[in-house]
Design a protein around this nucleic acid. Sequence first.
DNA 1: CTGTTAGCGCATTCAA
DNA 2: TTGAATGCGCTAACAG
Lengths: 339, 339
Amino acid sequence: MKDRISAYDVAEKAGVSQSTVSRVLNNYPFMKETTRQKVLNAIEELGFTRDEIARSLASKKTRTIGLILGDITNPFFSESAKVITRKAQEMDYNVILCNTNHSEENLNKYIQTLMGKRVDGIIVASADKDNQKIKELYDQGFPIILYNSIMEHDQANYIAVNNYKGAQLAVEHLYHFNHREISYIAGPSKYVTTHLRNLGFKDALDKYGLKMNEKFIYDREFSYDEVYLFARNLLNQQSRPTSFFASSDQMALAVLDAAASEGISVPDQLSVVGFDDIDLAKNQFIGLTTITQPKEKMAMLTLEKLVALIEEKEHVDAPIQIVLEPELISRKTTGIYKS
Amino acid sequence: MKDRISAYDVAEKAGVSQSTVSRVLNNYPFMKETTRQKVLNAIEELGFTRDEIARSLASKKTRTIGLILGDITNPFFSESAKVITRKAQEMDYNVILCNTNHSEENLNKYIQTLMGKRVDGIIVASADKDNQKIKELYDQGFPIILYNSIMEHDQANYIAVNNYKGAQLAVEHLYHFNHREISYIAGPSKYVTTHLRNLGFKDALDKYGLKMNEKFIYDREFSYDEVYLFARNLLNQQSRPTSFFASSDQMALAVLDAAASEGISVPDQLSVVGFDDIDLAKNQFIGLTTITQPKEKMAMLTLEKLVALIEEKEHVDAPIQIVLEPELISRKTTGIYKS
DNA sequence: CTGTTAGCGCATTCAA
DNA sequence: TTGAATGCGCTAACAG
């Protein structure tokens, strides 16, 4: 590879100084139009593009943000990532993507790496409750926002849906459809998101006077295969649940998969409610009943707020703490239970 | 935010020079163990992390690669991205994610940006045929690999599946199930990938003596909604196709969606074949018949080869041009046509 | 084995 | 309106 063309090369060709080149690159307004043109021409002829690394070092800004996701193959995350990257491009930011596979170790490692890369801000879409690193960043005033999660910290920035209420809506829906035996794919309560959904689920059971069957609760790590096996096993039991509430649509799909493998038809013999309202849930071949999150809105808002934090850190105002309302959308995977 | 801690601060605290600090950071082997410890302690106490930006500027390496995708919400891409980011982390690389939404303008813009960011290499998973920018990079010897696509250029690096053959397998399968009226969701032939699938499709029709019905071919841009409408419209016609072959599983889902909306049952009244074998295709609630791509293998290979190109550019060997074999997996969305 | 020195390619004062 | 000089925080010779 031939040597790169630097601003000095351009300067020489244009017969000006490097700082003048820098000025036209940065749209400095007070310049003679002719010199600007000379520089522009030289840039054109040489095919020069500035070195963003050097620029970052000098300016202490990278115009890059880190996006930490739990699992990019979960449509909830990828659909969010799509919105965030599009918006980022519009605002002239780049996105470094990090996939933790739901491991806190990875999360910490990624935060470390991103800080080393001097990203201007971070969006965390898969935060463990009380994560220490994140709290440190809040304390330092570093621009960081939790997406789809909240954190109890007076400086915490987050944008999420009311997960507690979402879970309640699910139980309510199933209850009204005469379901009394509800299996719950909860996921580990180490995440605030799932923790809140778990609380909502339990309180809703209480409200309707239903007892919780521990055997019907899956509280291990999110894993398609594990949930598939769990559901399949449960469906083979003598006293099997009449319905499932899954803490994510992805996991609801695993339940549907398991049901299909056992020849159990949905919704006739089994009802399933998900959470997230991924695009696929709308697909009429599937028609998953689920709890909506205003993903698009949340994602846009998250990026906008983050950029605001980055670019106008002067007036830090109050921390950003936004909680949106979920909604239940009834489709084809739930039906009235007939005993 | 308080001032960052630099290697000089560490050096001072440890009572050594900054270059010594740099040495321990880079695991330079010939050092007195005691000084190494002094430095390590100072690093620990100060909570120092090195500035990767400065490091990149000085070393001319960023340990970052660009990953350009057509659509992150298409599981084929997100599943590939997952493998690539995991592998990248293992090899101590970061990934900047770019989502083109299948627009060549975006592709070019992103390539530009990534080059400005001085990424060490680029993976393009959504390349337009004959893209000029990509060719330039090949000419310069810049490490760039096409994933799931090929390019006719003597220095092109690519890893893909035999798309021509894949399409043929699909037609063959449908033909053996007595389907004679096959609709094809082709996508625009400006992508090499789809172009080859289109060729395979047409040649297969010829082989079986089937005539191509232009009205059954969708050759516009990949868009879920557009394909949905196209399929729905077709299914409403008097002489509707008995089967669909979609150039991606994502588009096959759109067809299933349309069929469901028209109350047409699959596979009894309609057969559907996809392409990619996304995880969801295996879901028994759906059971999509499709053409497999060895995604995992392809993705791993792509990253490994790219890193090889980056790190050992001395022996550039022959260009990397790997074409893997596809396979048809018959599941629940295809059945024998009974007239 | 360790310190000194000179860049990397820009942005950004300060003068002129 | 422009140029010269300095430094961002590190790596990488080169001495010693």
